[in-house]
């Protein structure tokens, strides 16, 4: 049985940006719609391709992806404390296509229905969200694309 994917926890309030803030977001209440095709998201969420180096920072930052909270990555072993909730991401680029990875990061419960991994690009259908996060996704579209670019380096 495939282990359920589990990911990140952002535990603090201040989402200190690791890159320049995204330009003016759409009105916050607009629910994000994902263009799902065969359990994947073939279309990029942004016009520009993701940046792996920026994605690595999003991946590591506790208030953003915080992916190491649950996953292990051998190439990041200089970072302390890799979590155990989810599987190792070593070689994840070989196990999933970019389009599959995009959906797994954006809304993993659409792929692994029973996973505890949060959806990183979803802003509705959640319960009792703290006011400062209402209508907001954990990551921006650009941050998701950056994380995908980083995951693609994990061969």
């Amino acid at each position: 049985m495939r282990r359920s994917l589990v990911a990140a926890f952002a535990l603090c309030l201040s989402a200190g940006g690791v890159r320049a803030q995204e330009p003016a977001k759409l009105p916050a209440a607009e629910p994000i719609k994902l263009d799902v095709v065969n359990d994947s998201l073939p279309k990029s969420l942004t016009a520009t391709p993701g940046n792996a180096e920026a994605g690595k920072k999003v991946f590591l930052t506790r208030t953003l992806g915080n992916c190491l909270a649950c996953h292990q990555v051998t190439s990041l072993k200089s970072e302390e404390f890799h979590g155990e909730f989810g599987p190792s991401l070593d070689g994840v680029a070989g196990r999933y296509t970019e389009a599959q990875l995009r959906l797994i990061v954006a809304d993993p419960k659409r792929v692994f229905t029973d996973t505890v991994m949060p959806a990183f690009f979803k802003n509705d259908g959640l319960s009792r969200v703290r006011p400062e996060f209402v209508g907001k996704s954990i990551l921006t579209a650009a941050q998701v694309e950056d994380v995908i670019a980083f995951l693609k380096t994990l061969n």
Binding site: V6, F9, A10, R62, N66, L68, A69, C70, E80, F81, H82, G83, E84, F85, V116, P118, A119, L126, S127, R128, V129, R130, F133, K136, I138
Partner: peptide, 25 residues
Amino acid sequence: YTRYGQLDLACASCHERNNGKFMRA
């Protein structure tokens, strides 16, 4: 068993299904 918040986690997500495991430190 209800998942709450932007991180969409229930008590059970951590304390039933993942006890005995590390979440970061």
